[in-house]
């Protein structure tokens, strides 16, 4: 299937929107595929569980919203509780392992986990946790190429912070490769 639906969830401040933006940018601008990103606006998007939704496809994307995510990236328990029932039964679930207990998923869903916040803190800035997750996502899901993702990260973060963010990306990417091997 050419169309892949991705949903990223977490709480405000974790960089949920930027993560979706970078994945979409990597796919559409640097990997030359098509990508559409949408996000919930309004009161339902405020508070504890927010999300961004990205569709990546070889073909032109028509229906704009994510209905049954093939890949989910969940960075908080509330987001997991709210969004995880939507997942494709054969999809993959990526979680921040110290913040999310992935209980209640169908056995057919593959779960990959990473202590992204701790890794980010070890790099000196908790705020780059979303870049750790982006690297992890890139390695595990293989929807976007590593090079495209790196370019999209460097292109989307504040000038001067590229190295820190790319380091965080690489930590997540390496963790992802290890999980795939293990």
């Amino acid at each position: 299937m050419s169309r892949t639906e991705i949903k990223i969830g977490g709480f405000g401040g974790q960089g949920v929107i930027l993560t979706g933006f970078i994945i979409g940018k990597a796919a559409s601008i640097f990997d030359m595929k098509n990508a559409t990103m949408t996000q919930a606006f309004g009161p339902e998007a405020r508070g504890s569980a927010c999300s961004s939704q990205v569709i990546v496809s070889e073909d032109k994307i028509r229906y704009p919203y994510v209905k049954r995510p093939n890949v989910m990236v969940m960075m908080s328990q509330e987001a997991f509780n709210k969004f995880s029932p939507q997942i494709d039964p054969h999809g993959i679930m990526l979680i921040e392992e110290e913040l999310v207990d992935p209980a209640g998923l169908p056995d057919t869903v593959t779960v990959y986990s990473i202590p992204a916040t701790r890794i980010a803190e070890e790099l000196g800035k908790k705020i780059v946790l979303n870049m750790v997750m982006t690297g992890f996502f890139t390695a595990v899901s293989r929807i976007i190429s590593r090079e495209a993702a790196r370019k999209a990260v460097a292109d989307s973060v504040p000038p001067g912070s590229e190295n820190l963010n790319l380091n965080a990306f690489e930590k997540g990417y390496e963790w992802g490769l290890k999980q795939l091997e293990g």
């Binding site: 933006f21 979409g24 559409s28 601008i29 098509n34 990508a35 559409t36 990103m37 949408t38 996000q39 606006f41 994307i61 704009p64």
Partner: peptide
């Protein structure tokens, strides 16, 4: 419309 206005694409 709102969907197009807030939708991000290349």
């Amino acid at each position: 419309d709102e969907c197009i206005g807030h939708m991000i694409e290349k």
